[in-house]
Amino acid sequence: MKYFLTIFFVTVFFWASDAQKKAVVLSKEMVTVPAGNYQPFFISETNKPVQVKAFRMDEHAVTNLEFLEFVKANPQWQRSKVNRLFADTNYLRQWKSDLSIGESNKKIYNSPVVNVSWFAAQAYCQWKKKKLPTIAQWEFAAKGAPKNLKSPSLTEYILSWNAKPNPPFLPNVKSTYQNAYGLYDMYGLIWEWTSDFNSFIGSQDSRGNNEVDFKNFCAGGAINVADKTDYAGFLRFSFRSSLKGNYCIRNLGFRCAIDL
């Protein structure tokens, strides 16, 4: 009986670990976002419309399976080994263990990896010889007109996403809409890291008085905003302003980009 049980458990174990091995990492394209002008969310002396050069961007967010390859190749980014300064205690907490997403998490193999810090996201992109997009690149890319959206307007679609509590299992990548540049799920699936996520809070030299004082914002926060009805934009910039580089959050993932 004991032997039988042992064999049973060993079989189950191998079967389970096999499932993860067999799971196919989605092939991922990068698409070109053409050059254009980005009108920053905040208008100020230093935040003038910027020219965004053409760049390439991952068509969808980095998935759990993709990120698993990264931590296998870079053990210092495994959950039990990561430096706390670079990732807080929520780092990859949806996974079963260091090198296993978990059989019960099958549904999220091809869902965006979340609970990853800015440092981890940055390291992943460097490993792929890519980089995190800047706020300007991300925002410009996200402005691509939606191709197959069921909602009457993009803003309404985003706000309805904001109003829904987090689902127990995050849907897979490419499960929402695609935009004119060929990018999937820019809105409506997760928040995404950018390389300069909180740079708009203040200039690097904050001794001057030219900083965009986004944090004292009750009504004041709206003064310098280009489009005051862009509530979805407010939510996005507020979210970014509350982040720190080691934060790992349940609905925050990333995708990578390459400058051309």
């Binding site: 929520n90 944090k215 914002f217 009750c218 302003s241 509350s242 982040l243 959050i249």
Partner: peptide
Amino acid sequence: ADATATAPG
């Protein structure tokens, strides 16, 4: 408000 911009979790 200046001290309490708080991300999920």
